[in-house]
Amino acid sequence: MSLTDTGAEALPAPVTPDCPDPRGGVAPGAGALLRDDEETLNLRLPAEFVALRAELPDQGSPGETDLLDGVHTWGPTRTPVGVFELVPVRVDRDLPLIQGWMNDPAVAAYWELAGPRDRTERHLRAQLGGDGRSVPCLGVLDGTALSYWEIYRADLDPLAHFYPARPHDTGIHLLVGEAAHRGRGLGSALLAAVAELIMERRSACARVVAEPDMRNTPSVTAFLNAGFRCSAEVDLPGKRAALMIRDRVRRELP
Rank of each mutant, 00 (worst) to 15 (best):
H161M: 08
E196T: 05
D118A: 12
R23G: 05
L97H: 09
C230W: 10
P22F: 12
D155I: 00
A241E: 03
P136S: 03
L68C: 08
P62M: 00
A192D: 15
L86R: 12
H168Y: 15
L138T: 08
G70D: 13
N225H: 14
T40R: 06
L224T: 06
G31M: 15
R133A: 05
G132T: 09
E233A: 14
V87P: 04
L124I: 12
R90E: 03
R182S: 07
A106H: 02
L67D: 07
T120L: 07
A8T: 01
L33I: 12
T16G: 02
Q99V: 04
L186F: 08
R250V: 15
A27S: 15
D21M: 04
H123A: 04
P158T: 02
P57C: 03
P88V: 10
G171L: 04
M199N: 00
A242S: 12
H173E: 04
E200L: 02
L224A: 00
G24S: 07
V209L: 10
P17F: 01
T4S: 13
R90Y: 03
V89A: 02
F49I: 05
D104N: 08
R248D: 10
P17G: 07
S134I: 06
R248C: 09
A30L: 15
G139P: 02
D37V: 04
P158N: 13
L128R: 12
P254I: 07
A222G: 01
L253S: 14
A51L: 15
A32Y: 15
R201P: 01
P80Q: 01
V83C: 07
D36W: 09
Y152H: 08
R78T: 13
Y163D: 07
P76S: 04
R133D: 13
W74F: 09
Q59Y: 05
G132P: 00
G115C: 03
S231K: 11
L113Q: 09
M1K: 00
P12H: 06
A10M: 11
E200G: 12
S188W: 05
A226M: 06
L97D: 10
